[in-house]
Design a protein around this nucleic acid. Sequence first.
DNA 1: TAGATTGTTAATCGATTAACAATC
DNA 2: TAGATTGTTAATCGATTAACAATC
Lengths: 218, 218
Amino acid sequence: MNKDFILRLTKYKRLIHKLKALGFEKVFSNNLGDAIGVTPALVRKDFSILHLSGNKRGGYNIDMLVEEFDRILGGSEQQNVIVVGCGRIGTALMEYTGFSTDDLNIVAGFDQFPEKVNNPTKVPVYGMDKLQDFIRENNIKVGVIAVPDAEASRVLDMMVEAGIRGVLNFAPVELKCSKYQCETSCEIQNVNIALELEHLFYQISTQDINIDRDVTNE
Amino acid sequence: MNKDFILRLTKYKRLIHKLKALGFEKVFSNNLGDAIGVTPALVRKDFSILHLSGNKRGGYNIDMLVEEFDRILGGSEQQNVIVVGCGRIGTALMEYTGFSTDDLNIVAGFDQFPEKVNNPTKVPVYGMDKLQDFIRENNIKVGVIAVPDAEASRVLDMMVEAGIRGVLNFAPVELKCSKYQCETSCEIQNVNIALELEHLFYQISTQDINIDRDVTNE
DNA sequence: TAGATTGTTAATCGATTAACAATC
DNA sequence: TAGATTGTTAATCGATTAACAATC
């Protein structure tokens, strides 16, 4: 439910893996807080919620943290992802190599015209007619939508119907899971680049003026 | 300062433009709330902060809203953006046509090896040596970073030094604006796809168990 | 021991919502 | 007028932080 909390968890996990690789054996709430940009108190609170305990004097044991966070966040099982829509953005994701360090694995792409896809990767690209069978047979839970605006909603329905539980959506529509009682059954994360850019422009434009002052004065 | 508030503003703006196109003349806090997924009370509160007032019986006038939101959010001036790093993601953005409806305009790409870039667009691609001059001469305020991990930080410094005030970062590093007293002078928005995917996996894995129950019980 | 750090409680802060008087 | 909707205040809610006792 609490997005910020979950986001912090993934940050903790990454950081702790890095520290382990650097040879650290223990770490303090202080260090962790600095690194992910929160107060030490919040780190301790988070850890307390997760029942991760440290030593009053010696901080938290890195090996313990690595183990616990791997358990909490699904560990190092390969997490398989499909990409639907193999245009520029779709193929860019398929080609991206950085995922492997996070145990994310793009296992297939799907496109309306698979034969037209410029695909320099080893990831196979299938037609849309194969989509649902593939999801079912391989028990895929998470997919990326990178199809044009107009198709996004239909594609989402297909994916959810076949069993997809989480979607990262790059189409510039605020997708909502309409079909079925989907609220509970499919998480959607929208990545809207135009929105982010507009947001930046706005932040910049109000930065100097100081929006609070400007806006709350009568 | 308040991210959610600003994000709502851009959503209002888009929605209102759509309603105007549909021929609406007025709209109620109720409708707006439904459409962007917030309570009507919050819509009224937001509008009140912005000094947008409606009629006790007749809701808010669409023409007024269009005008005001355009003014507040920088209106329909073309907003020029550059893309630094013309790999897969960079070129995908350059090729993306959906920006024009938001008056976003990608005016140039930059790459270490501009001659190697596969560029099917009309957007010119220059070498990195031209970056700072271009930013200064064209008074560019917002840029996208789509370079590899290791270069991101250096590229950011170059951009900020030349006058960039907002950055959308696709490199999988949590960029912070280190140089100068940059806290105040450059907004950074990180888009970390791997993080979003992991986040989805985690949400799914805890959905059934009900994380709150699982986690807060002693 | 003295000093440092955890774990937890209570205080704070800020955003959202409920409620309702004002009024069209 | 009666009904509906705004605008605003006060209440609520939840997350973060400060503070400090416990203790290594």
